[in-house]
Design a protein around this nucleic acid. Structure first.
Lengths: 136, 136
DNA sequence: AACTTGTTGTTACTTTGTAGCTAATAGTAT
DNA sequence: ATACTATTAGCTACAAAGTAACAACAAGTT
């Protein structure tokens, strides 16, 4: 628990009970989670509070959001010192069978050359298909 | 108008008035449009009809959908003989200033190497930043 | 103890996307 | 032409996601 507090503090957030709980939940997952996933997990907790907890985490770059095309945004932990710059970003994978969204942390987003005058700030790259688990 | 009919017919759709209208609207745009954009444009037309027209177009690969992360799916015309396979796909660009979503038709999606066991079906790649128009 | 600031809970509303039914239209066979 | 069939269009209604506004609470500070 102390560990998680440190994570929160080092990202300039007060380590409240709610935040510890949500951070714990994120830590024990190997796939990205949505707001409604969290709602199901903590069915006593308020939806808006969870929502704001995620937003706060995101603002402080503890987690990043993934728009995987399912209609609900997913969230996953950032790497230790991530600043969410384009070169920090990795590819995400959505499995159409198990409906899980993975961070492919070892698959950086390839660089693209844009037309003249277009300036990149960030990239979202989602590959869809079947994951290693579902292929078996 | 005959032109558009051909486009519809060659993609196995009956050239109805509604479809011609929507196709026209898509043709005259150089940016991707959302359902609500169309609703504003044709404020006499029913939202659900527009919705289904887009769905039909998409199924028949006349247009493709783009999830640009704004929360509303955008649509844009496919190239003449597009089959929407991974190698047919191009990068999309969302300008955070003018809020327009562009098809970068000349910017194919770079290939990525996935971890073992992951099988690709399709890719969505959206670059966000400032477009050439807004940079000036 | 009173004040300030940040966090949580409640309610309520907007926007997207969509299902289900009905009405209109058109294409086909008698 | 008429009746039958299949598509397409319009209407109503609803669920889910995201979020704004405000009140209640907690915690730290003078």
């Amino acid at each position: 628990m102390k560990n998680n507090d440190d994570k929160l503090i080092s990202r300039n957030m007060k380590p409240t009970a709610m935040r510890e709980l949500v951070l714990d939940a994120l830590l024990e997952q190997n796939v990205a989670v949505s707001l409604s996933d969290l709602e199901k997990k903590f069915d006593k907790a308020d939806k808006v509070t969870l929502y704001r907890t995620l937003k706060t985490f995101e603002e402080n770059k503890l987690i990043h959001s993934i728009d995987d095309g399912t209609g609900s945004v997913k969230y996953a932990l950032c790497a230790e010192n991530c600043q969410c710059n384009p070169h920090d970003l990795h590819v995400h994978f959505f499995c159409t069978k198990c409906k899980h969204t993975y961070c492919l942390n070892n698959t950086p987003i390839p660089s693209v050359t844009l037309p003249l005058g277009f300036e990149i700030k960030t990239i979202n790259m989602v590959v869809k298909g079947t994951c290693a688990n579902c292929k078996k």
